[in-house]
């Protein structure tokens, strides 16, 4: 080691004095530290009870709504339909506006449907 031998160390007397003047903890400090130890131990003793009997899980309003509508798969379908409706509303196809006006005005022609001839036959035959 790089230090000089202890018996010739000019600092030895100071280090000896420093060791002798070691500060001793007072009763109040010891009591505070032991109170901490007891508190931490007591908190840990309570912790396993919380694990064995977990509190009921609280669901958020969105999760409860999803459950009511049939779960998340149903919610995705609903979301797709909502987006499609929004898209139709924002950029309506040509003719849709006129047809909507006909329906509102009570024009029966708006209900005429040009069915496929085969479909007409099937309808007449009572096959549907």
């Amino acid at each position: 080691m790089m230090d000089e031998p202890e018996n010739t160390d000019p600092l030895k007397a100071f280090f000896d004095a420093g060791k002798a003047a070691r500060p001793e903890p007072g009763d109040a400090l010891m009591a505070r530290i032991m109170a901490d130890a007891d508190r931490v131990q007591a908190e840990r003793a309570k912790a396993p009870a919380a694990v064995t009997a977990p509190a009921p899980v609280r669901r958020g309003w969105l999760e409860r709504l999803a459950q009511a509508l049939g779960g998340w798969p149903a919610m995705t379908g609903l979301a797709a339909a909502t987006v499609a409706g929004l898209w139709i509303g924002v950029s309506a196809p040509a003719g849709l506006t006129g047809m909507a006006q006909d329906v509102i005005a009570g024009n029966d022609a708006a209900y005429l449907i040009d069915l496929d001839p085969d479909a007409t036959f099937v309808l007449a035959d009572g096959g549907m």
């Binding site: 070691r22 500060p23 903890p25 010891m30 032991m34 130890a37 007891d38 131990q41 840990r44 003793a45």
Partner: peptide, 22 residues
């Protein structure tokens, strides 16, 4: 102490705190 022994903390406190404080 971790297993709930009531005395271990007292022995550790008496043994370790003087060194930590110093």
């Amino acid at each position: 102490y971790a297993n709930g022994d009531a005395v271990a903390a007292r022995v550790l406190t008496a043994r370790l705190v003087p060194r930590v404080l110093a």
